[in-house]
């Protein structure tokens, strides 16, 4: 009689944990999901002016419709000139976000661009500070 509620209690806790995890992910806390190894990845195109120019082209092609032509953000999408993107997030963090996306927030994965173009667009975004 006393053992029956246990599975339901565990299931309820599990659902609550999943809901909290989903909320933590969806409220923009994606930075906490990035592993230390990913966070420390070095951008091979860093400090290359051509990479910034190429990254700008990629940004205008794929990102500007949501984040704005000047990356200031739109009604529903965040600015890429924020402190979080410009200072808190490393190049490795942004690479992780572009590869994995944040689907619950409408941010798709851009893995199809390939690593070189992802690093190039990060060069451009980081040049906006």
């Amino acid at each position: 009689m006393t053992s029956r509620p246990a599975p339901f209690f565990i299931a309820a806790l599990l659902i609550l944990w999943c809901a909290m995890a989903a909320f933590a992910t969806s409220n923009g806390a994606w930075l906490t999901n990035v592993s230390q190894r990913e966070r420390e990845r070095v951008n091979p195109y860093r400090d290359q002016p051509d990479a910034v120019a190429a990254g700008r082209r990629i940004f205008l092609d794929h990102c500007a419709h949501c984040h704005g032509q000047d990356a200031e953000g739109t009604k529903k999408r965040p600015s890429l000139k924020s402190s979080r993107v410009q200072h808190e997030a490393t190049d490795g963090d942004l690479h992780w976000l572009l590869v994995n996306g944040n689907r619950s927030q409408g941010m798709p994965s851009w893995v199809k661009l390939g690593d070189p173009q992802i690093w190039q667009v990060i060069c451009y975004v980081k040049s906006l500070h």
């Binding site: 051509d50 990479a51 190429a54 082209r57 390939g114 690593d115 070189p116 173009q117 190039q120």
Partner: peptide
């Protein structure tokens, strides 16, 4: 595969 992975600086 794309024939070139990195984007060029000019259109």
């Amino acid at each position: 595969r794309p024939l070139q992975l990195a984007a060029s600086a000019h259109e």
